[in-house]
Simulated assay, not measured.
Amino acid sequence: MLAESPPETEQSAPPPVARPRHAARAAGLLIALAVLALVAVASIAVGAKPMSLDEVWHGLFHYSGTVNDVVVRDLRVPRTVLGVLVGLGLGLSGAVMQALTRNPLAEPGILGVNAGAAAAVVSAISFFGAATLDEFIWWAFLGAAVVSAAVYALGGSRSATPVRLALAGTAATAALVGYINAVQLMDTKALDKLRFWTVGSLASATMDTVEQVAPFLLLGVVLALTLGRPLNAMAMGDDTARALGAHLTRTRILSMTAITLLCGAATAACGPIAFVGLMVPHLARLVTGPDMRWVLAYSAVLSPVLLLGADVIGRVVTRPSELQVGIVTALIGGPVFIYLVRRKRMAQL
C-alpha cells in the first residue's frame, strides 16, 4: 500500500529563509521612511536664518505674514517638497539606468543625461527666449532623450561595457558643459538666470514650481516602480529574459521613457545635480541584494534623504549665505565615484 502523501499545507510552505528576509527588507524600508520624515522636518526647521522650533511651528500652523512665517511657509516648505520629488527622480532614474545598461557606474550626471537637459534649457533661454518653467520642461525632456540615446550608441549599444559608457558619458558631459559656459559668456543677460541653476539648486523653489514638475516626476516614478520584475529578468541576460517571458524592447522603451521624464523634470526644476543617482542604488543593494523591486523602493526613499540632507548642510556650513546642493552632492559623490571605479571586483549588473 502506498504511503500517504504529506498534507498539502506542508508541501506549499515557502522556504524558511524567504519570510525573514522579506520582513527584514520591509522593516528596513520603514526605518528609511522614518529617517526621511526626520530629514524633511530638519529641512523645514533648519536654514541659513536661525529660528526656534516655536517660530517654525508658528509659521506652519499659525501663519500671520511675519518675516519668519514667510521664510517657513513660502520658502522652506516648497523647497522641502521639491527636494523630495527631485530626489525621487534622480535616485530612481539612476537605479533604472544601472539595471538597463548593466553598468554599476551608470548615473544621469555621469552619463551626460543631466548635462543634455541643461544644455537644451540653456539654448532655449539664450536663443529662443524661454523664460518660464513650462517651457524649460519640454526642452529639458528633449535634451535628456537625445543625449541618453547618443551616449548609449557611442558606448556600444547592446555591447556596451561600464568603462565605455562612462567614457562616452564623460566626453558628452565635458562637451556640453563647455557649450553651456560658452553660451553664458556670450549672453550676459541670460547669465543671472543660469548661474545658480547650472550648479543645481533648490533655493528658488516655489509651490508653482512643485505643481508644474510634480505630474511629470510622479508619472516617471510610477513607471519606474513597475519595471522591477522585467529588469530582474534582463539582469540574467537577454536570452534568459526572453525565456522568462520578458519583452525586452518594451522594457527598454519604458525604461528610457521613465529616465527621460525623471531627469528632464528634475533638471528643469533645479538644474543638473550629479551623483545622487549613482550613490543611492549602490547603498540600496547593500541592504536589499540585487532584487530590483526592492532596490527601486529603497532608492525612492533614500535619494530624497540624501538630497535634503545635502541641502540642509549647504544652508548651515556657510551661514548666512548658502552652498548650492549640487556642489554638496558633488563633494560627497566624487570620492564615492572614485571608490567604485577603483574596486577590483566592480560587478556588472
Rank of each mutant, 00 (worst) to 15 (best):
P6T: 12
P78T: 04
G112W: 15
A153F: 12
P162Y: 03
M51Y: 02
V328D: 01
L217Q: 05
V316T: 14
D208A: 15
L227Q: 02
G314I: 07
L225H: 00
L262W: 06
T161S: 11
T260F: 00
V113M: 08
I110L: 15
R342F: 10
G91N: 02
A203R: 11
G277M: 01
P304S: 09
D239A: 04
P290M: 13
R345Q: 13
L88I: 07
L307K: 02
V146G: 06
T9S: 14
A119T: 09
A266Q: 04
K344W: 01
A3R: 15
Q212R: 15
A347I: 14
F127I: 00
A172W: 09
I137G: 09
A243N: 13
W197P: 14
R319E: 10
G155P: 10
L231R: 07
L53M: 10
R319V: 07
T209Y: 14
E135G: 15
Q348K: 12
T170G: 15
R73Y: 10
V56K: 01
T173Y: 06
A40W: 07
V221P: 10
S201H: 00
I313W: 00
P304L: 03
H58L: 04
V305G: 04
P281E: 05
R252C: 04
C263D: 01
D69C: 12
V146K: 03
S12V: 11
G116P: 14
A27D: 07
Y179M: 08
R285Q: 09
L105Y: 02
Q212V: 13
G314T: 07
G289P: 05
I180P: 04
A265V: 05
L142E: 10
I137L: 12
P78Q: 03
T267E: 01
G89P: 04
L60Q: 05
L349K: 07
L227G: 04
Q184T: 13
G237E: 03
A32Y: 02
P290T: 15
A243C: 12
V341A: 05
L133C: 00
F275V: 00
L296A: 11
A13F: 08
L262R: 07
Y63K: 02
D238Q: 02
L307G: 00
P104Q: 02
A235V: 06
R19F: 12
A300T: 10
T188A: 13
R158C: 09
V328K: 00
R242C: 13
G109Y: 01
I273G: 02
Q348C: 12
V213G: 05
W138H: 13
T249V: 14
M51V: 05
